[in-house]
Design a protein around this nucleic acid. Sequence first.
DNA 1: CTATAAGCGAGACGGTACGTCCCGTCTTAGA
DNA 2: TCTAAGACGGGACGTACCGTCTCGCTTATAG
Lengths: 198, 198, 198, 198
Amino acid sequence: MPSRPSHRSGPQRSEAARQAVLAAARQLVEESGYGAATVEAIAAAAGVGKPTIYRWWANRASVVMEAYLAMADAEVPFPDTGSAKEDFRCHLSAVAQAMSTHPTGTALAGLVGDAQHDPALAKAIAAEFIEPRRVAARQIVTRAVQRGELRADIDADVAIDALYGPLYYRLLVRPSPLNADFVDTLIAHVYPGLINDP
Amino acid sequence: MPSRPSHRSGPQRSEAARQAVLAAARQLVEESGYGAATVEAIAAAAGVGKPTIYRWWANRASVVMEAYLAMADAEVPFPDTGSAKEDFRCHLSAVAQAMSTHPTGTALAGLVGDAQHDPALAKAIAAEFIEPRRVAARQIVTRAVQRGELRADIDADVAIDALYGPLYYRLLVRPSPLNADFVDTLIAHVYPGLINDP
Amino acid sequence: MPSRPSHRSGPQRSEAARQAVLAAARQLVEESGYGAATVEAIAAAAGVGKPTIYRWWANRASVVMEAYLAMADAEVPFPDTGSAKEDFRCHLSAVAQAMSTHPTGTALAGLVGDAQHDPALAKAIAAEFIEPRRVAARQIVTRAVQRGELRADIDADVAIDALYGPLYYRLLVRPSPLNADFVDTLIAHVYPGLINDP
Amino acid sequence: MPSRPSHRSGPQRSEAARQAVLAAARQLVEESGYGAATVEAIAAAAGVGKPTIYRWWANRASVVMEAYLAMADAEVPFPDTGSAKEDFRCHLSAVAQAMSTHPTGTALAGLVGDAQHDPALAKAIAAEFIEPRRVAARQIVTRAVQRGELRADIDADVAIDALYGPLYYRLLVRPSPLNADFVDTLIAHVYPGLINDP
DNA sequence: CTATAAGCGAGACGGTACGTCCCGTCTTAGA
DNA sequence: TCTAAGACGGGACGTACCGTCTCGCTTATAG
């Protein structure tokens, strides 16, 4: 989301164009997958010139990512049930559900894939997608530690890696089911290592 | 019209060409990263025609993968220390070490990245790289269960996902340290959930 | 590593593609003028990839020029009537006729126009179009001098400039009739200065 | 020259902006050639908005032409020596001098080049640059005919074409010297055909 | 002595074409 | 017959300007 000086003369960025681009990107991803969402196709579908896209986004992955964020934002809320285990089970299930669904999972996988060749995109994914979710996850951990539900000496980052890493692993590396059963089993295997063990 | 008494078939340079291709692919990845190892660049560097590459491999990712396998094969052996925890610590550390090293990590990330757009490559990575290593890892789990070191009701696949997933997560999604400390902490957090806990 | 090749082999330039490109260029110029003969349009009309055009020609003007040469080559032959005055009248009329005709004149004007921004094209026009015609014109002059028809001290280049320059001037700079009358009048004004005047 | 809008209210056309645009155009042509004098570059260099340029000129060629006229106006005066031959020699030499000088020649060639794709510009060049000079040249011819110096049946337009055409030919088509020697030789070859020949 | 409306700078916009890169296939010459 | 070299059709890339269109500011004159 490129920030610009806000008090400037002349025409502002066209919100209509921005929305049209994002909508087109989203639709292309949904209908034909990430590979079809080329900059040219997005521009054509949005009724927008290519330079308008390049004016505001660095490359196609950035466009698709912003479109993806719009899709994903409302989808996977972090609950607060009072139990970290339930919170994580709930959220991990929702994430697994989103990952195994078209187009959400396809797009995420495509974006992370492209990010391997595009450091700027990698940074964007980390900063705009991953990090906000980790902040929420860390809050769950912090609350649970305060409650005595999780080990006081827990390393929140590593704990979160241990819970979410396997989901991304299955999404990206090892094609295998990403469902609630998997999440339950995962929690059953990982969570005991994280709890306060009297 | 020159007469042509072509009796026998041509010379068997194929193995030499194959080696040249793999060496060129490896060198390109090492020197300039995965992105530079295009088929054309590999062919040129190997002194080989493009069709020769396409005759033996499906696309550039397949070439790079084979070159990568040659690199990776000897690097990360599975130990058998008698303790599954030690086995995993040892192997996970080696994997983390390889992942955080150029060119091994770069190439693996690039391959997995490309695999998101290329199902054949995804299959190849799963079948030729991931699965052999999982087989070995499952043996560690199986032995440890028989020894009573790990829970009898363990789901080996999920356990392995829980241990290796976080590494791939850090490699691919979340740029963060991949060192022995991380492995130790990870094991400290995950392993207790896997052990036999009377 | 395979031994370095010391000779060339491989496929030759596709004559079919070359002809298709030139035909398409010619047709576009004829139908819609020089401005319509963009590289993209030529490639599309010829059923050829853009890179194939750029492999063999430096830019669109080079393509159009080659197409133009094919058009122009047979059109304006140099006669040898025994009289230089008649030779020039005949040839100048043919040139004026070609210049004032679509597409020949349009294309020539467009090419010379582009040549003002493109030194390579200017060189090509001079070397491949202008110079061959000047060689023929110089022969006419030389023969006429030997015959005693033209001044012995004539400067052939300047004489040719004086005869052909006005045609190009009218084509490029000053929109005005380019017909046989003009040629006759031009010769009537210029030729007396060139003849042997005892 | 653009016509003035009604005297209703508000600021009038900014003469400063107009001068800045012309100066910038001239400077760009001088420094980097005609090709560099894009509308955007002129606007930027003049510190002026693009619409200000398009409000007052039809396109970049019009701007450059006006700038060019300002350059050229004072440079090449028509003399009146009493001898048409001397008048023409003098003026043709000055024109040849200007044509072979940067930026005057560059800009003129560029303008005429662009005019091949832009009928409006062609018309402007003819009307605003060529025609005024031809009027002066016709006066020389007329005076000389009255004096009996030139043939009574002379076609002034063709005579002028015969004298000036070769200069433009060398400027635009045939890269070759444009100096006083050339002008002298040209006159020596062409002028005898124009004089009164008792 | 304002108010209004034109001219201004800035620059975003939809577009067209550019020239490049690499893909994966096809063709040819020579060993 | 097989291989190297590389030309081919194709698709997308990211860039340069084009000429048009708002914006919000400035300013001169009409009221």
